[in-house]
Design a protein around this nucleic acid. Structure first.
Lengths: 212, 212
DNA sequence: GAGTATTTTCGACTCCAGTCAACTTTTTTT
DNA sequence: AAAAAAAGTTGACTGGAGTCGAAAATACTC
């Protein structure tokens, strides 16, 4: 039996996030005041701070939820036998598309995710570990198939892909990469990461070197 | 002849940044109010907004100045004949060390640099281009020496290194990489990026594969 | 089910970033 | 060198994020 309290807490939390997303989308993050938001959610201003530490946290929690759901989807649909390059491109492009739906949300979310405040560290690490649980098995299988070096820790391999993902998002913000070019750019970067930046006498396969 | 106005503008700007850094360092960014800062700089509160758009901008401008100076230094000291791996590690570790001197500054600076607001885009791109002017010649020489593929655009090569740098800083914030380990971690990542994540029958040289 | 403890809600309040219209200083014009 | 224009300075003011202590709601105890 959940108890009145627990039930209401979940409901209220949802109500806040729901109201927040509606208002943030309609009027923008800065143009929405907490007081307004509280009224829309049918609660008092102070109550919000029993659920979230800051205004940004509301947005961040929403984005994390959305991505969590996306990851569930990706995990169930994943075809673990296609080349790791394509798997990684699919996963990170799905994330990229989701995140870049709203530029303002994306900025605030990425700022906190990539460079989190110390108070958020625990939550952040937990979330990251969930992500690893999705990625590691795929990378491990790719290692077995001989597509990835076995002498590189999975954490580092993930790092390479995640680093390039960060780069892509950053380049998108600065306007160096357009939304339509993103998929191509990420694929190119990932392929180069796999092939290496060092020149080699003979190409590894004939898929390579078609694009810069 | 500079004119009274121009001279004073530069002085005032310096006074603001100077006072800001003293106070931010002593009391922390959030604990320092603009009014306090204005008093310390010997000017009125409103005047600050004739020089900087936001409180964060003051910090950001300071960090950019510091990094600019660092780049000058790096450019003049650069030995363009040592392996590109070492050159890149030196440059990015210098930046890492500078930036991580103060955790709070680092967070605010990186958040704005990696995911800039639209109003800051022009300044940001200009600054990035200056950076490229430092890096491109080094990378080009490395291509000539056969250390880097010639079929990958310089912008992309820079991207690989910068992406891994972002990753390192992000991992430092999350506590996955300690300050003392950073240099080793970056070197490993950069070497892996050069060698590639794909396994190869015979190692390229005997420097490789010693660390994960 | 009355009484006590604990958790949650609330909005008046504090504090501060950022604005703005009046004012001062410098430059340009005549 | 006086007048007009332009650029820079200022602090009282505004609006909103986040706090806090009192009040309400729920949960425990006998």
């Amino acid at each position: 039996m959940p108890g009145i309290r627990e039930t209401k807490k979940k409901e209220t939390r949802q109500a806040i996030m729901q109201a927040a997303m509606t208002l943030f989308s309609e009027k923008g993050f800065d143009q929405t005041s907490i007081e307004e938001l509280a009224k829309a959610a049918g609660i008092g201003k102070g109550t919000i701070y029993g659920y979230f530490q800051t205004k940004t946290d509301i947005l961040h929690a929403f984005c994390e939820d959305e991505l969590e759901r996306l990851h569930q989807e990706l995990t169930s649909n994943a075809d673990q036998e296609i080349p790791i390059l394509q798997q990684m491109v699919s996963i990170y492009m799905a994330e990229f598309k989701k995140i870049t739906e709203n530029r303002e949300f994306a900025r605030l979310f990425m700022q906190q995710t990539a460079f989190p405040r110390d108070v958020d560290l625990d939550r952040h690490l937990e979330h990251e570990n969930d992500y690893f649980k999705l990625l590691f098995p795929l990378l491990e299988k790719a290692q077995e198939r001989g597509e990835l070096r076995k002498d590189v820790e999975l954490l580092y391999i993930t790092g390479h892909f995640y680093g390039l993902y960060l780069l892509l998002v950053s380049a998108w913000f600065s306007g160096r990469v357009q939304t339509e070019e993103a998929s191509m750019a990420l694929q190119t970067l990932f392929r180069q990461a796999i092939e290496g930046l060092h020149p080699r006498p003979e190409p590894l396969s004939n898929e390579g070197n078609k694009h810069v």
